Amino acid sequence: MLRIAALASNNGSSFRAIAAAIDEGRLDAAVVSLVVSNRSNASALDHARARGIATLHIPTKGVEDAADEMLRDALIAAGADLVILSGYLRKLGPKTLSAFQGRILNVHPGLLPGYGGPGMYGRRVHQAVLEAGEAVTGATIHLVDAEYDQGRIIAAEEVRIDPSDDAAALEQRVMQAECALFIQTVERIAAGALSLPL
């Protein structure tokens, strides 16, 4: 059984999609064992609690080193095989990265290596893509390392941009692609088609 821990700062859309796939039996070889947020009011925590999933709030502002150690220890205690970032808007520290090297995945709302890096998340990515006049965008699953959006790409899915798209409309379509791609990637890991560490 693949034990997943999810990190989310807000809604945690891809975590929710993975949890739903588990509940529906589409991901029957995986379980979410812990959800962690740097924000105590993150709706991802409420969603996890409603499903009986253990939750933890670890504040990070001004206490990055202590938070890094707490997160590493919590992930180890939860028996996490795989850590997924679902809109987690904090850089991970060296202790967590070292303990889970090759086992931390993030989903980015664009086709990396373009439109990534510090400050490029959520609707900001979609606005930048539209302003650049791109015809295609998408979602990327990548390994997490010490730099934003720099880890090795594991999977990507293209999303065509319609001439009528604004950032909000594009965000909704890309989010659907993100969730589906993350579920597919977790399925491949759970089935042994992708071996951890990646």
Rank of each mutant, 00 (worst) to 15 (best):
4 I>N: 01
5 A>K: 00
7 L>Q: 10
8 A>F: 07
9 S>H: 09
9 S>Y: 12
18 I>E: 04
18 I>W: 06
19 A>Y: 04
19 A>E: 10
28 D>M: 10
28 D>R: 14
29 A>Q: 14
30 A>F: 07
31 V>W: 00
31 V>I: 02
31 V>E: 15
32 V>R: 00
33 S>C: 15
34 L>S: 03
40 S>R: 14
41 N>E: 15
46 D>R: 13
50 A>D: 13
52 G>V: 04
53 I>Q: 08
62 G>A: 12
64 E>W: 11
64 E>R: 15
65 D>W: 10
71 L>C: 08
72 R>Y: 04
73 D>F: 04
75 L>I: 03
77 A>Y: 05
80 A>E: 06
81 D>L: 00
82 L>D: 04
83 V>N: 07
84 I>S: 09
85 L>K: 06
87 G>A: 09
90 R>K: 15
91 K>Q: 12
93 G>Y: 11
94 P>T: 05
96 T>A: 15
97 L>F: 08
97 L>E: 12
98 S>M: 11
102 G>R: 10
103 R>C: 07
104 I>W: 08
105 L>G: 06
105 L>V: 01
107 V>R: 01
110 G>C: 09
121 Y>C: 08
123 R>T: 07
124 R>H: 15
125 V>P: 02
126 H>R: 10
127 Q>I: 02
131 E>S: 14
134 E>L: 13
136 V>D: 13
137 T>V: 02
139 A>H: 08
140 T>K: 13
141 I>K: 13
142 H>G: 05
148 Y>Q: 05
152 R>H: 03
156 A>F: 00
159 V>R: 06
161 I>W: 00
165 D>M: 05
165 D>H: 02
166 D>S: 02
169 A>C: 01
175 M>A: 09
177 A>E: 10
177 A>V: 03
180 A>Q: 13
185 T>P: 05
196 L>N: 07
